[in-house]
Write a protein that binds this DNA or RNA. Structure first.
Lengths: 108, 108
DNA sequence: CTCGAGTATTGATGTGTGTCAACATAGACG
DNA sequence: CGTCTATGTTGACACACATCAATACTCGAG
């Protein structure tokens, strides 16, 4: 659950296998259309957070499937989880996204 | 072979399914430890390009496997291919990487 | 305590993907 | 033309993963 990143931009110097192995799962978490939309839905939601019920409504997928994708994003360190009453609210860890972006976009 | 990107940052407004479906394959291409290293090896190589023989030496994988990964990166629009004599040289399309980075890191 | 609503977990299934061995292609060089 | 080197393609296989139905868990509300 520790968060993300580790390295200077991709284009700066060659990644070691260890670095690559560490980063890949993070990118894998984002590399899915459903999870991309989940991320952007949460980020664009008011208060930067949304409950599962809000999110599920945007898809034609079963509740367990949505729950699964949220778990993946959470375990990758991209979404924060907070339970309030019956509801679970997810919010984006911007630092995590920023780290990934810096890793990839060293050219700017 | 058209290149990449399409949208404002993830965190700006919710992605449509179409946008997400279009972007996901790109991220999938990067979301592999071998391909991450290939990208960074090419980028960090002198002249921003490298031939397959150079790259293969950095891995303990078969030549067809390296060739396969390079194909994936090329078809995603992340690597440029140019054949000179017997060798094939790959170079990084920085604009593509930059686009992806901007998509993800809207928070900066 | 019981019930129901919101989420998570489990097990099963089909599809995708990384890898290799074997083979095919392309070009340099004799 | 043959041969050797560099690279790509094909087919096969094991494993990972997205999805769902069924089930379990967690809490307010009554």
């Amino acid at each position: 659950m520790e968060t993300v990143a580790c390295c200077s931009p991709l284009t700066a110097s060659p990644l070691t296998s260890e670095q690559a192995e560490r980063i890949a799962p993070l990118l894998k978490a984002i590399a899915d259309p459903v999870r991309l939309r989940l991320l952007s839905l949460v980020a664009a939601h008011e208060g930067q957070e949304a409950c599962v019920c809000d999110l599920q409504a945007a898809f034609e997928l079963s509740q367990p499937t949505i729950s699964h994708h949220l778990k993946v994003l959470h375990e990758a360190g991209l979404l924060e989880r907070s339970k309030r009453a019956t509801w679970v609210y997810y919010s984006v860890r911007q630092e995590a996204l920023a780290d990934v972006a810096e890793l990839i976009g060293g050219s700017r």
